[in-house]
Design a protein around this nucleic acid. Structure first.
Length: 560
RNA sequence: UGUCCGAUGGUGUAAUGGUAGCACAAAGCCCUUUGGAGGCUUUGGUCUAGGUUCGAAUCCUAGUCGGACAGCCA
């Protein structure tokens, strides 16, 4: 039985009731059934967390990974591999229960034959246009196909000839014989097998006929002993057909289909088609572009699997088709990274700072805490010298009120080092400040005698002679509006031109030079960053911003 | 248009006929060698109209609004 302390939702309640009622001998078997025709995205993560999550909460519960590969036109082996990788990366284990709908093609064919023998399916010669026309529209009943009353023998013979490839694509289909007057379009003699003379990524050229989703899915579920078949809302209207098919045939079990609302995330798009359009249109660099809501993109960006899982549990599961604020995802990322990411200093937009009373050629090392949230992460030594870089944002010649950073005459602490006072600035011909000159107070070194002295601001820095240069990419939301598909005109008009900012001359503390691909750190006072696995090279890690730190000053300054 | 589904603060959710709560966001304060993190406080909600009931977010009826469906896609 499920632990009642765990968060629940309407699906878990249904499963609970079924278990209590002793259905399926109290077993819980779910499945995650992707079609291998594209990459997984954060919306799939919701489904993965749900299906694997529900199963894991019951004694002996399991979740299968089943590829719904019934349409060879769109499906490819490379997608199978990326999907397996993504599910594993998210932290879930199908425990050897890896299946393909194509594993069941023989069985499915036999089920179709059984249906024909029961007089519940027929071969139809109508063209697809005619079928559409005969189907009618929802308010009015459809018309029956003239081929509907063929004899069982003829249907059997024709279906066999379809299988052998004797007909062309589109020439004939197998249809379930249900009710052309049903108010549910899906019950109006739906097509359950079509001819496709296309090579399949797993069964090669063995088959010329392939089952449709509605036929294959419920029977695959039944064959695998799935107890709860959880899917998204758009399949709700398919449920009567799911039930009908299982009721006609002799199947080992009768799974229960339950629908929930798919995830909609603000400031992005989620459909495979639109995502593909972004990739093909060159709007992003690929499926794993760090701005993409794909798991491949989010992984490359640096999101942790735990933060995605936490996000999924926070958003809950309902039948309400809403829009989740991306801020919730960002919060989940910060929450996890705050605990786990070590701190480093990096200056993204460097401004030279010279300490005029500091010895010319001296270098010393100051001790820096790796993670204030995790003392066991220890400390490191950071080189300090006369010439430093600080962030351009941390200096203003004419500061507004409440600006606690550096400006002429003001003091700030250089984190882990000394308190410095700005005495002067150097400008170029255009009047831009290109160097800040300071004096330091030797007594105020961290841990030293005068260290207790309070100043309003603390800023980060790197030593110019010791820092190394690298590229840092700042990612932002892909669109400028919450729901680009909910507007007049082309959704691509709302792409955010500032979704990517590449900074080429960032100055990073030396400890960062050995950072490995995929490593995540917090750049103090800036945000969480991840070493890009593609564009980094030994000794020169390139960083992707996962998410910025909350910035109260930016908020304050923005309001002015 | 017909069927099905849904509706609780700005957003996502909880309350399963009995005190409308939580998280994010927003605002304010405290703390701070990250304007980070943390702590405290505040603002703000049951789509509408009827009905059942001692009592309704919850049950019933009608309406309003939103979504799904009319592929030989899944």
């Amino acid at each position: 039985m499920r632990n009642t302390d765990l968060p629940s939702d309407f699906i878990r309640e249904i499963v609970d009731e079924d278990v209590k009622a002793g259905k399926n001998e109290g077993k819980v078997v779910t499945r995650f059934p992707p079609e291998p025709n594209g990459y997984l995205h954060i919306g799939h993560a919701k489904s993965i967390c749900l299906n694997f999550g529900v199963a894991s909460e019951y004694q002996g519960g399991i979740c299968h990974l089943r590829f719904d590969d019934t349409n060879p036109c769109a499906e490819e082996e490379r997608y199978v591999e990326s999907i397996r990788e993504d599910v594993k990366w998210l932290g879930f284990d199908w425990q050897g229960n890896l299946f393909f709908a194509s594993d069941y093609f023989d069985k499915l064919y036999e089920f179709a034959v059984e249906l024909i023998k029961k007089g519940k399916a027929f071969v139809c010669d109508l063209s697809s246009d005619q079928i559409r026309e005969y189907r009618g529209s929802p308010p009015a009943p459809g018309r029956e196909s003239p081929y509907r009353d063929r004899s069982i023998e003829e249907n059997l013979a024709l279906f066999e000839r379809m299988r052998r490839g004797e007909f062309d694509e589109g020439e004939r289909v197998l249809r379930a014989k249900i009710d052309m007057a049903s108010s549910n379009i899906h019950m109006r003699d739906p097509v359950i097998y079509r001819i496709l003379k296309v090579s399949h990524h797993r069964t090669a050229d063995k088959w010329k006929v392939y089952p449709m989703y509605d036929f294959a899915h419920c029977l695959s579920d039944a064959v695998e002993g799935i107890t709860h078949s959880i899917c998204t809302l758009e399949f709700e209207v398919h449920r009567p057909l799911y039930e009908w098919i299982l009721a006609q045939l002799d199947v080992p079990c009768h799974p229960r289909q339950i629908e929930f609302a798919r995830l909609n995330l603000s400031y992005t798009v989620m459909s495979k088609r639109k995502l593909l359009e972004l990739v093909n249109g060159g709007v992003v660099a690929g499926w794993d572009d760090p701005r993409m809501p794909t798991l491949a993109g989010m992984r490359r960006r640096g999101f942790t699997p735990a933060s995605i899982r936490n996000f999924c549990s926070r958003i809950g599961v309902t039948k309400y088709d809403g829009m989740t604020d991306v801020a919730l995802l960002e919060h989940s990322a910060r929450e996890d990274l705050n605990k786990s990411a070590e701190r480093r200093m990096a200056v993204l937009n460097p401004l030279r700072l010279v300490i005029t009373n500091y010895p010319e050629d001296a270098t010393e090392e100051v001790e820096a805490v790796n993670n204030p949230e995790a003392p066991e992460a220890g400390t490191r030594r950071v080189p300090f010298s006369r010439v430093l870089y600080i962030e351009q944002d941390d200096f203003m010649e004419e500061p507004p009120k409440k600006f606690h950073r550096l400006y002429p005459g003001n003091e700030v602490r250089l984190k882990y080092a000394y308190i410095v006072k700005c005495t002067d600035v150097v400008k170029d011909e255009s009047g831009r400040v290109i160097e800040v000159r300071c004096t330091y107070d030797p007594e105020t070194r961290s841990g030293g005698a005068g260290a207790a002295r309070k100043v309003k601001g603390t800023i980060h820095w790197v030593s110019a002679a010791h820092a190394f240069d690298t590229q840092v990419r700042l990612y932002d939301r892909l669109f400028t509006v919450e729901d680009p598909t909910d507007t007049e005109g082309d959704w691509k008009e709302f792409l955010n031109p500032e979704s990517l900012e590449v900074l080429e001359t960032c100055k990073l503390e030396p400890a960062l030079s050995g950072a490995a691909a995929g490593e995540r750190v917090q750049f103090e006072r800036v945000g969480y960053f991840c070493v890009d696995a593609v564009d980094s090279s030994p000794g020169r890690p390139v960083f992707n911003r996962i998410v910025s730190l909350k910035d109260r000053w930016a908020k304050l300054a923005g309001k002015r």
